[in-house]
């Protein structure tokens, strides 16, 4: 009886779940790498990767090896990392704002990051990859500030935050459209619109490396503060009464969320609803405590996004559907379910 009751029981369950999810993740990444304009079998995928890592010297057509390593694997890994990052953001925001519907896309943070990035692309403020990320980061922070201002901190109810998020989304999307239509040429406009719905096309290894560092550091910080996040279960004041430095935790974690969102948006665009769907699904399996929830969110988010990427490429023949379309098709019904279930308590 104690075994099932003690936290150690949960740890074993979590470890099993994580192992299983990582195996599934490896398999989905391999599948994502195998599928494309022309399919490459899984054995070739595996040998290409081991060849590149210098583990084997198998005889693979150079073109296939290059496609696997340079185009598809980097794309699949960015998808996995973006999914992990957005899911972590969702879990953090849901805990801090105590709102089941909170996530970067719903709160307008993704829209803010898009506006920042578009400023850099179209208006040419600054130059190079770093300034694109910086622009997105500034936009994400502006959105956070606006939402905080509109919902007026802790005094308003959780619903205000979502309404403030709606307002922020509208404002930043309008700004983005304004900038694109007034300053961009037709080609830029088309590029930006496609990118706003999310696209993993064109990502390369440097993107993987940057995102890997950001996701690992963010996950580390969040897990470090995981226990403090649990203390927010009954609100800010309750957390303070339990000895949690509320203001500092909020500042650091909102910062981490903005950084993650900005990095992801500047790379692959504003992909919605991953941060909404994944934490709820993960909570269902590993429970609400953040030391377990956050790692679970990371792997489940990764699997979800890679599957969404595969779906976006096979759902229409000869066309790649924007990834945001796929996640929205899954996410919006999910959003409706949560909204419906949250209603009686509101």
């Amino acid at each position: 009886m104690m075994a099932s009751d003690a936290p150690e029981g949960g740890a074993v369950r979590l470890a099993l779940f994580l192992c299983l999810s990582l195996i599934v993740l490896a398999f989905t990444v391999a599948t994502a790498t195998a599928i494309g304009d022309y399919n490459i079998n899984l054995r070739t995928v595996f040998l290409s990767v081991t060849n590149e890592l210098g583990l084997t010297g198998a005889d693979i057509a150079p073109i296939e090896q290059s496609v696997v390593w340079n185009l598809r694997l980097s794309r699949a890994l960015v998808a996995a990392l973006a999914g992990a990052g957005l899911a972590i953001c969702g879990a953090i925001l849901q805990a801090l704002l105590r709102n089941a519907l909170a996530e970067p896309f719903v709160l307008g943070v993704s829209a803010g990051a898009s506006t920042g990035a578009v400023c850099v692309i179209v208006l040419g403020i600054g130059a190079g990859g770093l300034s694109l990320s910086l622009g997105a980061f500034a936009g994400a922070f502006a959105a956070f500030a606006l939402v905080a201002l509109l919902s007026n901190g802790a005094t308003s109810g959780p619903n205000h935050t979502i309404l403030a998020g709606v307002a922020a989304s509208q404002l930043f999307n309008a700004l983005t459209s304004y900038i694109v239509t007034t300053s961009g040429n037709a080609q830029q406009a088309r590029d930006v619109m496609f990118w706003l719905l999310g696209s993993f096309g064109g990502v390369r290894w440097p993107d993987v490396q940057l995102l890997l560092v950001v996701v690992i550091v963010s996950l580390g910080v969040c897990i470090w503060m995981g226990r403090a996040l649990d203390a927010f279960t009954f609100g800010d004041e309750d957390a303070a009464a339990l000895g949690v430095p509320v203001a500092r935790i909020r500042l650091v974690l909102f910062g981490v969320t903005a950084l993650l969102t900005a990095t992801i948006v500047s790379m692959v665009g504003a992909i919605g609803f991953v941060g909404l769907v994944v934490p709820h699904a993960a909570r269902y399996v590993v429970g609400p405590l953040h030391l377990r929830l956050l790692p679970a969110c990371a792997v489940v988010g990764a699997v979800f996004m890679v599957i969404a990427d595969i779906t976006s490429r096979v759902i229409a023949t000869q066309q790649t559907v924007p990834i945001g379309v796929v996640t929205a098709l899954v996410g919006v019904p999910f959003f409706a379910i949560i909204l419906y279930r949250a209603r009686p308590q509101a």
Partner: peptide, 20 residues
């Protein structure tokens, strides 16, 4: 704050949560 919370506890009126 943390040391203080080992000495004093605070019970709010009907604190609620949606978390399971």
């Amino acid at each position: 704050r943390k040391a203080l919370s080992r000495q004093i506890a605070f019970v709010q009126q009907s604190a609620a949560t949606d978390t399971n």
